[in-house]
Design a protein around this nucleic acid. Sequence first.
DNA 1: TTAAAATAAGACAAAATTGTCCTGATATAA
DNA 2: TTATATCAGGACAATTTTGTCTTATTTTAA
Lengths: 143, 143
Amino acid sequence: MFSKRCEYAIKIMTFIAHQQKKSNKKVDVDAISKAIDSPKAFTAKILQDLVKSDLLVSTRGRFGGFSLSAQIDINLKQIIEAIDGHKLLEGCLLGFGACSEKNPCVVHHQLKSAREILKLKLRDTNLEIIAKRVNEKNAYFKE
Amino acid sequence: MFSKRCEYAIKIMTFIAHQQKKSNKKVDVDAISKAIDSPKAFTAKILQDLVKSDLLVSTRGRFGGFSLSAQIDINLKQIIEAIDGHKLLEGCLLGFGACSEKNPCVVHHQLKSAREILKLKLRDTNLEIIAKRVNEKNAYFKE
DNA sequence: TTAAAATAAGACAAAATTGTCCTGATATAA
DNA sequence: TTATATCAGGACAATTTTGTCTTATTTTAA
C-alpha cells in the first residue's frame, strides 16, 4: 500500500514526535536511523523531502538536527502526500489519466467509499495520537 | 495502491468477462493486450499467473486462448491476491513481520477499519458487477 | 504429416525504486 | 580561526518491478 519511503517517513515522524514530547530537543539523522532501524543515507533523503514539504524544520551545523514544524498537529495524510504525492489517495486505481466521477474506470465507484474512509482515517490520525500510543507502550515504530 | 501487474490483471479479467458475456468464446493474448492497451508479452506473464491461481483456464494450440474458470463469480480480492499475494490486504502497513492485533505497530489500529472496508468492497465487487458497468457503458477498462 | 496458431517458460533488458558514498556548506564551541 | 558535528545534494550502485525476446510445446485444420 505505502512505498518504502512512506513507511520510513511515518516512522521518522513518529520518532521525532515521541522524542519532542519527552525533551523538546532536535534529533539528528544518526539518532533517527538507529531508532527506526533504517539506512542512514536513505533516511537523510527522506528527511530532506519532509523539510521541503514543511513538515519538519532542519537546523544545520553543530548541534543541529530536525524538529517538527507544527509540533504535534501533523497527520498521516500530510506525511504520505509529502512523500508519494496525490497518487495513492487521488489518482485512478487503474492508472487512467482521465478517470473521474463522470468518466469513471470500472473500479472507480466500487472502491470510492473505501478510499474516502481511508483518507478520513489518515487525516484523523495525527502525531499526537501516535505518540500517545508509543508513550503508553501500546504500539511500536521499531520491531 | 495496486501494482501495475494488478492493474493489468483487473483489466484482463474485466475484458474476458465482458467478452464471454457476449459470445462465450475464448480470448487470446493478442486480443487482450490490444483491448486493454497493455504490452503483449507482459500481459502473457500475468495471464500465466491468473491461470496458476485458477481464476482463468487456458487452452493451448490453435483456437486456444483464455476463459474464466468460474464464469462471472470472481471478485477483485481474488484477482489482487492472485497477483500481489496477501501483502496489500493482510501485511503490516509499516512492513513489520510480527505486527498483529496484540502486538501492533503505530498505525495498525488506526487504519484497521479502513482496511477492513477496503477488503469488504473488494470482495463484494465481482466480475458480474464490473461487466455490467461496461455493458451499460457506465465505466471503461480502456481509456 | 505438416503448417499455422496458440500458450508456456526461461533468459534478457529497461525503468523505477531503494540504498550508498562522497563532497560541500553551515554552525558552534574551543 | 580552526576543528568538529551537522545537514544538503549530486553521482553512483543494488534491487525490484516492468517489459521484451526467443524457443519449446500443444492443438487443430488441411
